[in-house]
Design a binder for these strands. Sequence first.
DNA 1: CAGTGGTCTAGACCACCAG
DNA 2: TGGTGGTCTAGACCACTGA
Lengths: 230, 230
Amino acid sequence: MSERNHHSIREAIRERIASGEWPPGSLMTREVGLAEEYQCSRTTVNRALQTLAEDGLIERKRRAGTRVKDLPTKRAQFDIPIIRHEVEATGRAYRAHVMSREVTAAPDFVAARLHLKTGAKVLRLQTVHLAAGHPHAFEDRWVNLDAAPGILDAPLDKVSANEWLLRQVPYSSGDVTFSASPAGAMEAAALEAREGDALFTIDRTTWNEGRYITTMKLYYRPGHKLQTRL
Amino acid sequence: MSERNHHSIREAIRERIASGEWPPGSLMTREVGLAEEYQCSRTTVNRALQTLAEDGLIERKRRAGTRVKDLPTKRAQFDIPIIRHEVEATGRAYRAHVMSREVTAAPDFVAARLHLKTGAKVLRLQTVHLAAGHPHAFEDRWVNLDAAPGILDAPLDKVSANEWLLRQVPYSSGDVTFSASPAGAMEAAALEAREGDALFTIDRTTWNEGRYITTMKLYYRPGHKLQTRL
DNA sequence: CAGTGGTCTAGACCACCAG
DNA sequence: TGGTGGTCTAGACCACTGA
């Protein structure tokens, strides 16, 4: 902590918490006090403390002051990458193979997720993502044709559906679910795995300003891990 | 966007991006320009844009200006809860059952994770977390006795090892890995599942200021999901 | 080298809420 | 009701880096 910017002050305070100077649940020095200690303006201390609050380490309340959280919630943050980038980052060549592509009536669970009427037309795409020629993940995707009609003309052999949709409807919201599923016949075949193998699975539904665009389930090859720092 | 604080300005800008006003990769209006548009100080616009950059939506470079990201990285954020809270949040009673507890020599992979010499003494704890009497998760934990000797006297039937460690060494760093694993004999028995069942698994190693404290593997009952918003 | 974002400052006013 | 954090402002200087 040689400098006096909000980064170094944040880290200095983080260390004081880690060292036990302010035990869990205790009241910390208030902003003006810290500003004096660090010989900086209150604005700078405020910035540092707001970041620590976002990180879930402390709790701040007007009038009540700033407290170290009692049982801090750990917050894990993952960047959900484009699969192509994920593969290329490991130095392997990426390729996608579209196994099946059909316009069909939405089954119930898809209609529910995309807020459509049962039977509405959707595009179903099943794709294997290959890393250096070996299966990396299997994607089972349903696209709402009302929200993204152009996808029928998209060159999905060249650009993956995900990337195409990202460019058309770039800044969408979504929800994501992580789980483990046993490989069914379809997934096993696509991933060159055995039926029943434990597959790490990501379910994802995407929308933009109230329009539901696509829902997909991504099955990773057996052994795949997703790692992060707390 | 009636008010003029950095929150509303951030959301206003987010909507302008979502609406396509600034397509992927394009250069956005610079800070002073936005400050004029929104009739506020540059500081406020800066705050709004920094938040959007943290969210992974835009990229900012001195001299080069602010651009909408080309292929935005989605960032998923999970709060990793105390298991007791996770269970109680669903309205079920929580109980932990310590199946096994022994001081033993660290096997290689544990020694490596905790940066110990092979054979150093560690505490191994195997615990089933129960929700309303049914197995919820199985925890296989190794604790570095040098870093947390007091744990030998802790009432682990009353306070889970996790919570005890959190209170002793509250503000630690860690890394976390999510994956899917097939249930082994031990996990199957503990979770009342079948061997080979696909289990959602969290691996976690925790340290504080260079001292490695504990590593654990948590196997959830079949069907467990972890959900979040993007 | 000049234009952009990154940051600090001092002062101000406000919202909230514990006492 | 007073003390705390939340936020804004105007101005300033600096760090970076593209043209």
